[in-house]
Design a protein around this nucleic acid. Structure first.
Length: 729
RNA sequence: GCCGGGGUGGCGGAACUGGCAGACGCGAAGGUCUCAAAAACCUUUGAGCGCAAGCUCGUGCGGGUUCGACCCCCGCCCCCGGCACCA
């Protein structure tokens, strides 16, 4: 209900602003007829292991009472409500987006229509790092080893200790007695107490405790101490590291605190002070068989050695984590999985889809899904054996719904499947997608992932959903992003009431190019309104003249020809700006220039231009202005268009084409510079030969004093632009 | 720290492929109309100097390339965004 009311309000507002959407393709993602296909895809993904359930530590928003995906946490806070996120151990569903990490990354180089900053954000988020993984045997325990990941296998000879994440499962095995177990438990508690925000605060002293067990550095055969420390995270790599304090700043800090040995394995540059780790390039030293090679070479040699010994391999790690999609909310598509007492976890049968979100749900706020309270929903029959079964009570992240709606748009009423394949393959990919930058690693990443999943399920031949992306800026008012919580929102209805939809639209497009933030100022809207009023009044005042006017004659006076050039220049400019760059701001300014010139022409031409010529040009200018401005200010332009006696709508007219002949100039102004400084201007025929222009420039009265007594070393002539006279004293 | 984007008048922003920096709009100042105000219209509006013609300076800072640099190159500074004890 609430959702449908919101949709209705939003539609009213969009209509009021005169937005032309194809409402025939409208769809609601909360409609079971939409999300049933999502449930079907979920089942397909489940069958292929792309959707799986796992108990793990997740991000929990205590205010929304739900799990959040990593992408939905910003600086330790919920993207939606800004509350501090806490860790919580919970069972939930995940989509295996990590399976596509490499492809998602690789395609970042094949999306030339996307802004660089969005691609950068996605690359950062995926966070590929290449290195090696290998085992450190635990001293005295032949069958036990700690697997570590490093990007610097070349520094292995400098490994003077190793560190496991506090939560690392091996830690329990390594603990030797009750006393040590107690120390570990105490340390874990200390670390676990901290919030995400505290834990990620920069420059925090590294804490850790030493284990009784020791490991062996396989490169040197030496025994080294083992630690657990808070600076090693279970969620990345293998949750354990080799520590090389000589070449890693974190290890250096920790080693200094605990009095551990530091070995340099790369030759330092001259004058290097041993006050920090050395991260640069250089020749390997103190590194056995790696000595003498470069860092890059040593990395390869070290990996080859690990492989030959059978204890390690090269390894690529990604920062990207699987997409946690379970939500404990009362919206989003239900997860179509049942738990049968005899068959276990079973997906719903396809013919039983959709699993519909029940109505009349009580919100308990207990941290459980509200659906768990609805007996008629929870209790069901096993699709396999018909016995008693329980439904999964989580719903899918609503980002799943938005991850494919654009494909549904291609055939919104299609009932035989998620989409009509031929329609989808005809329309997709989206030629030009538009969205806010805040979705750089949310929606835009999920949509790319989901598209690839659909492709691999054999449903569509499509690698990427969006060929080109325009990421618009935010609306800024009084120095802050416009938002309800900041209380600085502008009510569109209020703007429309006071200035009209056209002026509101005109200002919005005029104030800045779309990819930049838009600074909202009321005086700017007033300015837009002023411009439109001026045009309105002009057309009212000249209506009769325009309606009576014929076409302007072919042979025009100079003044008329100059003005006609402005008209056609505007057409050319607007066409290019809009079609190529979406730079409506410069397009609009070109129309404003043209309209300004129109006022001037009307004022100054009375005694200089013949009446027929004048009326013809005024008509051409006004009609062109209306056509060019039509998409921006549809209401007023259509009304004026009709007022000028046109029976057919403005929006049924062809887009104007610039008359190449009108753009031609017979004469141009050429700047004359002496040593790069503008000293004079010349008006010359466009066809004037270079030599003549040069001579004319040199002969100029204003130029002579600047070159008298100096030797002219060189004269640069740029046809139609400038003459630069270079002198030597 | 790494990666990306930026830095141009009082403000939002223009400047096409290296060729007149500041288009267009806002704001401001002065004027016309008016008893007055609003609206509208006209003029001025990068800084400095000058009666003027005009001159000098000027696109974050310092260098460089070039006849010529907001634009290209090198070295910095600052702002915004992303990532970050990620091994």
């Amino acid at each position: 209900m609430w959702t449908h009311e919101n949709i209705a309000n939003m539609k009213t507002q969009l209509r009021r602003l005169g937005m032309s959407y194809d409402w025939d393709r409208e769809l609601a993602t909360c409609d079971p007829s939409y999300y049933r296909w999502e449930q079907l895809v979920f089942i397909r993904m489940f069958e292929r292991g792309l959707a799986y359930k796992q108990r793990s530590r997740v991000n929990w928003c205590p205010s929304c009472q739900t799990v959040l995906a990593n992408e939905q946490v910003e600086n330790g806070r919920c993207w939606r409500c800004d509350s501090e996120v806490v860790p919580k151990e919970i069972e939930g569903w995940f989509f295996k987006i990590t399976h596509y990490a490499e492809e998602l990354l690789a395609w970042c180089d094949r999306l030339p229509g996307w802004p660089e900053r969005v691609l950068t954000m996605q690359r950062n988020w995926i966070g590929k790092s290449e290195g090696a993984e290998f085992d450190l045997p635990v001293a005295g325990l032949t069958d036990l080893a700690v697997t570590i990941f490093t990007t610097r296998p070349d520094t292995a000879f400098g490994m003077t200790y190793a560190v496991l994440a506090p939560e690392h499962p091996l830690v329990d095995t390594l603990a030797m007695d009750e006393q040590e177990r107690a120390r570990i438990a105490a340390f874990r508690q200390e670390v676990g107490r901290e919030s995400e925000i505290e834990r990620t605060a920069a420059d925090r002293p590294k804490r850790g405790i030493r284990l009784n067990a020791r490991a062996v550095n396989p490169f040197t055969g030496e025994e080294i101490p083992l630690f657990i420390a808070d600076y090693v995270l279970m969620g990345y790599g293998s949750g354990a590291i080799m520590a090389v304090p000589g070449e890693d700043q974190r290890d250096w800090d920790f080693a200094k605190q605990h009095g551990l040995r530091i070995i340099a394995t790369v030759k330092r540059p001259d004058g290097w002070q041993e006050t920090q780790a050395y991260l640069g390039d250089g020749v390997k030293i103190n590194s056995g068989f790696l000595d003498g090679s470069t860092v890059e070479g040593a990395k390869r040699t070290a990996i080859d050695w690990l492989v030959s010994k059978g204890i390690g391999r090269s390894k690529v790690n990604y920062r990207l984590r699987d997409w946690g999609i379970s939500r404990q909310r009362y919206w989003g598509a239900p997860i179509p999985i049942l738990y049968c007492e005899t068959c276990g976890m079973v997906p719903e049968r396809e013919e039983n889809l959709p699993v519909v979100l029940p109505q009349d749900v009580q919100i308990s706020g207990k941290g459980d899904s509200p659906l768990a309270e609805v007996a008629t929903f929870v209790n069901a029959r096993c699709p396999k054996c018909g016995g008693r079964a329980r439904r999964d009570t989580d719903t899918m992240d609503t980002f799943v719904e938005s991850a494919w709606y654009f494909i549904r748009y291609c055939s919104p009423r299609y009932e035989q499947g998620m989409f009509d394949r031929s329609a989808a393959e005809y329309w997709m990919p989206v030629d030009q997608y538009i969205g806010g930058i805040e979705h750089a690693v949310l929606h835009l990443l999920y949509a790319r992932f989901f598209t690839k999943v659909l492709r691999d399920l054999g449903m569509i031949k499509l690698d990427e959903p969006f060929a080109a992306l325009l990421s618009q800026g935010m609306v800024i008012k009084d120095g802050a992003k416009m938002s309800k919580s900041k209380g600085n929102v502008v009510d569109p209805d209020d703007m429309i009431r006071r200035f009209g939809a056209d002026a509101t639209r005109l200002f919005t497009l005029f104030a800045a190019p779309p990819e930049r933030d838009l600074e909202w100022t009321e005086s700017g809207v007033e300015g837009a309104s002023r411009f439109l009023n001026r045009l309105w009044r002009f057309v009212q005042a000249h209506g009769d003249e325009i309606r009576a006017a014929g076409r302007a004659p072919g042979d025009l006076s100079d003044a008329a020809r100059a003005f006609r050039r402005v008209i056609h220049h505007a057409i050319a400019r607007v066409t290019v700006d809009v079609e190529r760059d979406f730079h409506f701001n410069t397009a609009i300014s070109a129309v404003m220039e043209m309209v300004n010139a129109l006022h001037e022409f009307e004022r100054d031409s009375l005694d200089r231009v013949a009446a027929a010529e004048r009326a013809g040009l005024v008509r051409e200018a006004v009609e062109t202005a209306l056509l060019l401005l039509g998409p921006v200010c549809p209401h007023m332009t259509e009304e004026l268009w009709q007022a000028l006696g046109h029976g057919e709508s403005l929006f049924r007219q062809a887009w104007p084409a610039a008359d190449a002949a009108a753009l031609v100039r017979e004469q141009v102004t050429v700047v004359v510079q002496v040593d790069g400084k503008v000293r004079s201007r010349l008006t010359v025929d466009v066809s004037a030969p270079e030599q003549a222009v040069r001579e004319q420039a040199l002969a100029e009265d204003k130029i002579r004093p600047w070159i008298d007594g100096r030797e002219v070393a060189k004269v640069v002539v740029v046809p139609g632009r400038l003459v630069n006279i270079v002198t030597r004293s």
